[in-house]
Design a binder for these strands. Structure first.
Lengths: 184, 184
DNA sequence: CAAATATGTTTTGACTCGATACTATTAAGC
DNA sequence: GCTTAATAGTATCGAGTCAAAACATATTTG
């Protein structure tokens, strides 16, 4: 059974990679670069740095730095220096980047394949895979990278929503993004 | 929902790739080489060729040829010329190769993460992912690569099991392996 | 038997990746 | 405060991936 699940995930990932490669051809984007771009479009302001991308993709920071340089040179992201900590640069997806993502991510044929399942089956699959991912990340000693809204540090008070880690106020849109500090 | 499933599969695959990379370090094996080796250990005699691996991994045959050369140089596979068609070489996993696979594939932490789910949840996940994979392969115009036993060409008669495509007799062990000609 | 097709290898160039070394900034220890 | 350690990030290098194209054999088709 482990073998079967392992096999299925690997094969789906291979197909996704193949389609991603084809879709990125127009801009000369490699699969890993598209993954980084996609991540940056879904994460919050605590998680849009080189190191967060590194952690998310499970690569080394030198490697990721290179991929980000390519994304920047193609005007798909821009760098913004952090106000309070001069070591940190935030990576923001540009309009061009978002347009590209909307057209290619997730890949069309994948979406088509998934929508052939019933809505219930789709959400069941997501729930089950989430649990495996969560277990796996815990076992491997990695950050969970979950949606802010579901984090244990997310505090709702009468004055609005606050992050318990940074004590900063959060907007409703903020809480729908992925955070690297996510904790259950 | 598509986005979520896409995300989950990518992230699981990234973690798997990372662990695979670590496990292959002892032999100096790259993730893609381990994938090829694993595939060869699970496929039948119609599907143990360079082209079948190519199709399975979704790469080009030149690329795959390189990876197989490495596996051969490390004595993990051996080449056997086909008797009837001299263009074809069959790739057999050696004893050493099988020992390596038993220790590393699927990766330990992944197995650990999966076994935290109930048996029923595990088999449900497998069923759902199989369906997505099958849909995806059809949409992308790829071979399904299923287990021989479940293939529509698999014919059970009084004299034993026969492959309807090649008209060759199959053993019970044969029918449990993966075939590139699999068809539902 | 010639032309087309199929299996597989080799080569080339662009790119990935980990490792290492490096810079700059911030935090910690005394 | 001042030194040391830790953190965020970049640059370089060598091994390896990958697609594309050219090539060599062997088989099938007409």
């Amino acid at each position: 059974m482990n073998d079967e699940l392992f096999n299925l995930i690997e094969r789906l990932a291979n197909l996704l990679r193949q389609e991603t490669r084809a879709e990125g051809l127009s801009l000369g984007l490699q699969p890993v670069q598209q993954e980084a771009l996609y991540y940056l479009s879904t994460c919050n302001r605590y998680s849009d740095t080189t190191l967060a991308v590194t952690e998310f993709l499970g690569l080394t920071k030198g490697t990721v730095s290179q991929s980000l340089k390519v994304l920047e040179s193609k005007k798909l992201i821009v760098r913004e220096k952090d106000k309070s900590d001069k070591r940190i640069t935030h990576l923001k997806v540009t309009e061009v980047g978002n347009i590209f993502l909307a057209e290619t991510c997730p890949p069309k044929k994948f979406t088509e394949a998934v929508t052939q399942l019933s809505g219930k089956d789709q959400s069941n699959t997501a729930t089950l895979l989430s649990e495996i991912l969560r277990n796996y990340q815990r076992t491997a000693g990695r950050n969970a990278f979950g949606v802010c809204r579901n984090c244990k540090f997310n505090q709702k008070s009468s004055e609005g929503i606050v992050c318990g880690l940074t004590q900063e106020p959060l907007s409703t849109e903020d809480t729908m993004l992925i955070c690297r500090e996510y904790c259950t």
